[in-house]
């Protein structure tokens, strides 16, 4: 059903694009494919691309598995100078050593929004988009991150990964600094066409990032929200701070989040600190420490986690990772084990 909807949508947009192309096509702007950047048809501002992520997981006391964890398609189209449409359609765990699931079960709309460029520095976004809390959730896609596992403080159980609503962003440049401010409203109760049960009921939030210099960015996030499937529906607060430092392929990334909840989701706070050290021949050593205190996945826990691993980036769009995750009180929320993955933008 959903697949049919998007085939029709893509076909419809393609037809409109074709009409637009007749008016604007320059012979120098024919469609072309670039590895890791998709097919671009510059003349009509259209791009089709995506990524895949194949994962090997062997948590202790569980069966090992190999799966096509993600297969995503991106569709970007700018039908007007001030409009930009973006969609990401994803299949999650469609193929695995456990079997083949149906597309209807595994296909989802990860993102679907329209950007209205209100000025050179401001954008109004309408639709379904990633919740702007911290850095990881905004760049969680496997070819962009260094580990196969995800820090607990960025998981969907701590805050819903998507917003259905509107977001206004504005950028201010001063000297070498850049300040980005985002303010958003969620109204999933009425706008979530896909009725995601772990989503927000509604919410309001903001995020501010400041580029101190070209190597260092700091950020702060705030969210007031209600959950859709949790009763009683009380108003919850979330606060987060984050930091990213990058220089000469070295990286340090930090996020800390505090969430209050008067419903049965419970209060929770935690952090992670991750370092990336370049080795030789495009290999990188990754280390991460995580701490979570509170009710995670409805389980009261005080958990410490360590992750140590290697990542190999032989080409820009491709990353191969292997890591060992271990910890204290982690058996229910993030079991000790070996995890590996191959991810690539195409």
């Amino acid at each position: 059903m959903m697949l049919n909807f998007f085939v029709i949508l893509l076909f419809g947009l393609g037809s409109i694009s074709h009409c637009a192309a007749k008016e604007t096509t320059s012979p120098e702007l024919l469609p072309h494919y670039q590895w890791g950047r998709g097919i671009t048809w510059q003349a009509i501002n259209l791009n089709l691309g995506g990524y895949f992520n194949a994962v090997y997981e062997h948590p202790q006391q569980f069966k090992e598995s190999v799966s096509l964890n993600d297969l995503s398609l991106f569709f970007t189209w700018s039908p007007h100078q001030r409009l930009r449409f973006f969609a990401e359609i994803e299949t999650e765990n469609w193929l695995s050593t456990q079997g083949v699931d149906s597309l209807d079960n595994t296909l989802s709309t990860e993102r679907l929004y329209l950007d209205i460029l209100t000025s050179p520095a401001s954008t109004l976004r309408l639709g379904k988009f990633l919740t702007p809390i911290g850095r990881w959730n905004l760049t969680h896609v496997s070819p962009l991150i260094w580990t196969t596992s995800r820090p607990l403080v960025t998981e969907r159980r701590l805050f819903t990964s998507h917003v259905n609503g509107a977001m206004f962003t504005h950028r201010v440049d001063f000297n070498v600094h850049t300040l980005n401010v985002a303010f958003y409203l969620d109204e999933s109760a009425t706008l979530d066409a896909f009725d995601y049960q772990l989503g927000f009921e509604n919410g309001v939030g903001s995020r501010v990032t400041l580029d101190i210099n070209e190597n260092l960015q700091i950020g702060a996030s705030w969210l007031n929200f209600k959950n859709k499937s949790i009763t009683p529906k009380s108003s919850n607060q979330l606060l987060g701070i984050d930091l990213l430092w990058k220089k000469n392929h070295y990286e340090l990334e930090f996020e800390a989040i505090y969430r209050t909840a008067e419903d049965n989701q419970g209060t929770e706070h935690g952090l992670y600190l991750q370092s990336v050290v370049p080795l030789m021949n495009d290999f990188y050593a990754i280390s991460r420490y995580e701490y979570v205190n509170g009710t995670h996945r409805y389980l009261p826990t005080i958990t410490h986690i360590g992750v140590t691993g290697l990542a190999w980036k032989p080409f820009t769009p491709l990353i191969i990772k292997a890591e060992y995750l271990f910890g204290d009180n982690n058996q229910f929320v993030a079991p000790t084990g070996l995890f590996a993955s191959v991810s690539m933008f195409f």
Binding site: T40, F74, F86, T139
Partner: peptide, 21 residues
């Protein structure tokens, strides 16, 4: 080539690098 990581992140947001002539 040092900007490729930046363009990877932008690609995820649906933004591709400038057209190459």
């Amino acid at each position: 080539e040092e900007l490729e990581v930046f363009w990877n992140e932008q690609y995820f947001q649906g933004i591709t690098p400038p057209y190459v002539v």
